[in-house]
Design a protein around this nucleic acid. Structure first.
Length: 407
DNA sequence: AAAAATGGCAACCGCAGACTT
DNA sequence: GAAGTCTGCGGTTGCCATTTT
C-alpha cells in the first residue's frame, strides 16, 4: 500500500516561518490545543503542511522550551544518555526538560561529534578510541563541508550510499537494535551493561587509581540490575603511555600501568558482572556505541589481564565464568554454553584461534549478518595474535568480545 | 574587501509504528 | 484482518551569519 502524502504540497508555504504565521499557529493551538495536525493548517488558515506546523510548534513555539546554550550539565547528560541510548534523540530529550530532540540532535552533530572526532585524531593513529569512530560511524554525520557538498553533490551522494553499505544501519529499530547492540545476549534481561564516556569526575580518578596520574580519560561500565547500579571505571592511559614495553602490548603490558591495576580491573569486572560464578551469569549487554568508545582500552586491558592473570591456569572454574550462554537473537531460542577456554592465551605461548571462536560465536548466536567479517578485521599478527585487529576490530565484534570477557 | 569555508539552527523528507475505519 | 490515516522520529538539507583565507 502506498503511503498517502501528509498533505497537498501544492500552493503551500515552505521554508522559514514568518512572525505572522507563528502568531496564527500559536493563537490557534492556545485556543484549540495540540493535535489534529493534518486539519490544523486548514482550520487555522495557514498555508502550511500539518507536519510543518507540528514541527514549528514543538521545536520553536512551545512555551515550555528552554532557550540558550546547552549547559555543561546538559551536555554531560546528553553524552551519557547517548552512550546508552544511541541516537534516540527524543528519549534523550525526555531527560532534558525544555530541550527538543531536534535541538539535541543538532547539538550533538555540531558540537559533540566534533569533539569526539578531535579526540580521535589526537589519540594517535594506533590507539584510536573506537568511541569516536563508532559514534561517527553510527551517525554517519561528521559534518561535511556544505560548500563542497553543493559542488559535489552527486559524488557525495554516491559516497553516502557507499557508506551506508559499509556501516551499520542508520536508525536501528528496536528489533534491529537488539541484534546490533546485543550481538551477544543471554537468557534473560536481568542486567544491562553500559559504558559511559567519562562520567567519572576527574578528582575521583586519582582516588580510584592513584598511580594512574597520567590518565587522560576514564570510562565507566555501569551495570544496572533493577534498582541497583554498579559502576566500574576503565582507565585510558595518556597517549604517550599507550605503548607497551616491547611494542606488543598484548605481551608486554602497558607502561605506566601496573599489573595490579590490570588485575584489579578484571577482578572487579568479574565480581561486578558475575558476583556468583555458580549461577549462569545472566547478563544482557547493551550500548554498542558507548561500549565501542572504550574499545581499545577495554580490549587491551582485559586481554592483558587475561594474559597475566589467567594464562597459567585456565581451570574450569575460571573458564566457566568466562563462558557465556548465547541465544539466537533472531528467534529467541537459547543457545548452548560456549566456553572461552580453548580460545584464550595459553602458557605454551600460542594464542588460540579467535577467529574460529568468532565464527563459532556467530553461528551460535546467529549474528553472522553483522558486518564484521571483513578481512580488515582479521588480525595481522603485528600487534596481537588474537586473530582480531585491535584498532580495526569493528563494533559488533568488539562488543561481543567484551561481553564475552565480562560474562 | 571579497570569496570561501565553517557554524548553527530551522525545516523538510521519508519511514515506521500506532491508531482508526 | 486489511486498508487508510495520523503521528513521531531520525537523517538530511537549506539558509543565513560568522569566521577565515
Amino acid at each position: 500500500m502506498g503511503r498517502a502524502p501528509c498533505c497537498e504540497k501544492v500552493g503551500l508555504n515552505r521554508g522559514r516561518w514568518t512572525a505572522e504565521e507563528d502568531e496564527i499557529l500559536t493563537n490557534y493551538i492556545q485556543a484549540n490545543g495540540e493535535g489534529s495536525w493534518r486539519s490544523l493548517p486548514k482550520n487555522a488558515g495557514l498555508l502550511r503542511c500539518g507536519k510543518s506546523c507540528r514541527l514549528r510548534w514543538i521545536n520553536y513555539l512551545r512555551s515550555d522550551l528552554k532557550r540558550g546554550n546547552i549547559s555543561e550539565q546538559e551536555e554531560e547528560i546528553i553524552v551519557n544518555l547517548h552512550a546508552s541510548l544511541g541516537n534516540r534523540w527524543s528519549l534523550i530529550a525526555g531527560h532534558l526538560p525544555g530541550r527538543t530532540d531536534n535541538e539535541i540532535k543538532n547539538y550533538w552533530n555540531c558540537h559533540l561529534s566534533r569533539k569526539l572526532h578531535i579526540f580521535k585524531n589526537t589519540s594517535g593513529s594506533e590507539t584510536v578510541p573506537a568511541l569516536a569512530g563508532a559514534v561517527l560511524k553510527n551517525q554517519k554525520v561528521g559534518r561535511t563541508n556544505r560548500s563542497n557538498k553543493k559542488k559535489n553533490k552527486s559524488s557525495i551522494q554516491s559516497d553516502q550510499s557507499k557508506d551506508a553499505n559499509e556501516t551499520v544501519p542508520r536508525t536501528p529499530t528496536s528489533e534491529k537494535e537488539t541484534i546490533l547492540s546485543s550481538a551477544i545476549s543471554c537468557e534473560e534481561e536481568t542486567m544491562s551493561c553500559k559504558v559511559l564516556l567519562d562520567p567519572c569526575p576527574k578528582e575521583e580518578r586519582t582516588e580510584i587509581w592513584p598511580n594512574m596520574t597520567a590518565c587522560s580519560d576514564v570510562y565507566a561500565i555501569t551495570l544496572e540490575d533493577g534498582e541497583t547500579k554498579k559502576s566500574i571505571s576503565m582507565l585510558k592511559p595518556a597517549a604517550e603511555e599507550f605503548t607497551s614495553t616491547n611494542g606488543d602490548f598484548c605481551d608486554g603490558g602497558v607502561q605506566g600501568m601496573k599489573d595490579s591495576d590490570i588485575n584489579l580491573r578484571l577482578d572487579d569486572m568479574i565480581m561486578m558482572v558475575d558476583p556468583d560464578p555458580d549461577d549462569d551469569g545472566i547478563l544482557t549487554f547493551h550500548g554498542n556505541t558507548g561500549m565501542c568508545g572504550s574499545g581499545t582500552t577495554i580490549n587491551m586491558d582485559t586481554r592483558s589481564a587475561i594474559s597475566s592473570d589467567h594464562q597459567d591456569d585456565h581451570n574450569q572454574e575460571e573458564t566457566g565464568r568466562l563462558g557465556m550462554k548465547l541465544m539466537d537473537v533472531s528467534n529467541g531460542e537459547k543457545g548452548e554454553l560456549i566456553s572461552g577456554s580453548d580460545h584464550d592465551h595459553h602458557d605454551d605461548g600460542k594464542h588460540h584461534d579467535w577467529e574460529e571462536y568468532w565464527q563459532l560465536l556467530g553461528e551460535k548466536a546467529d549474528i553472522l549478518s553483522c558486518p564484521w567479517d571483513s578481512d580488515n578485521n582479521h588480525g595481522n599478527g603485528d600487534s596481537c595474535d588474537y586473530g582480531v585487529g585491535t584498532s580495526e576490530m569493528d563494533d559488533e565484534k568488539h562488543n561481543a568480545m567484551v561481553a564475552w570477557l565480562l560474562s
